[in-house]
Amino acid sequence: MAIQLTRRKFIKTGAAGILSLGAAAHPSGLLANLPQDAADSKSRVILARDPLCINDRNQCDPQRVKQLFDRSLMALSGSSDTKTAWGVLGLKSHDTVAVKINCNTWTVSLLPHPEFLNALFESLGQVIPLNNIIVYERTSGDLRDGGFTINQSKTGVRFFGNDQGGGYDKDEALTRIITDTCTKIINLASFKCVESDFGLSLFFKNHIGSLKDEDMPRCHGNPDFLAAVNARPSIRKKTLLLLSDGLRATYKRGIPWYWGGIIMGQDPVASELAAVDAVNEKREQLGIEPLDIPRHLVIAQSTYKLGKLNPAKIEKINLNL
């Protein structure tokens, strides 16, 4: 099919090109949507910690969590306020944002903390209506098990599972929540060490919950499939932010750890690698064998160009509040 390029389209395309160049010049910006190895700039990842954010009863200080979140967002975007930060990262006022959380936190609870979610919602609410935020999981039952109330109304943040999200897209085999309903995705993963082949259950594994039930087991022991899922067009193009609630984490399968921090980035490979490093630091302190770089990260970088693995191409910013 021949493409008719009108003068108006040409001007629009040119403008988009100029905007893209501007974004690429920024250390993070819209780079998540570009083949990472083609981008010259480094992938920025924030590791922010505040030991007073959470106590050893898994109770959070909402003000400190909000401060930690806001500071991370500003550091990631290089902005002086959070509203501007969202704009720099690529959020538009008409966007609908799907937030993928993980309620399957076998065995110790690593559910996203309400204080952390509130900080996210409050921040997003500066740019988009709260009703344009959809928190989703594999099923509404999983969300209920996690203590969340299902909300499909026209007010407030919406919460529902794939089973109430209009089915699955035929081509991408992903929930329609992310292929059709939303325009942006926030991948909000627990900070969970599972060892085995995966190392961590973080950003890549979080999207297992965006798949059809019958496809879920295909991820097990299959790093290529896991990387490929995260390279599907909707996930690749719409992901706005990778975010991990590490207020409570695990450094070894099933062993809780009040890490008191969050991980934030736009490059899934670099962000997950930063989490592996953080876990290995703890394991080294305790004399536990470090985790290897998970195979799915290597494949995601080399085959699917989803991000950077070379530490020289990653700008890791440690914020200690």
Binding site: N104, W106, V194, F198, K205, M216, P217
Partner: peptide, 11 residues
Amino acid sequence: TIYNYMNGGGV
């Protein structure tokens, strides 16, 4: 199946 309950933890 056990995968429906605990995902990859079932392996």
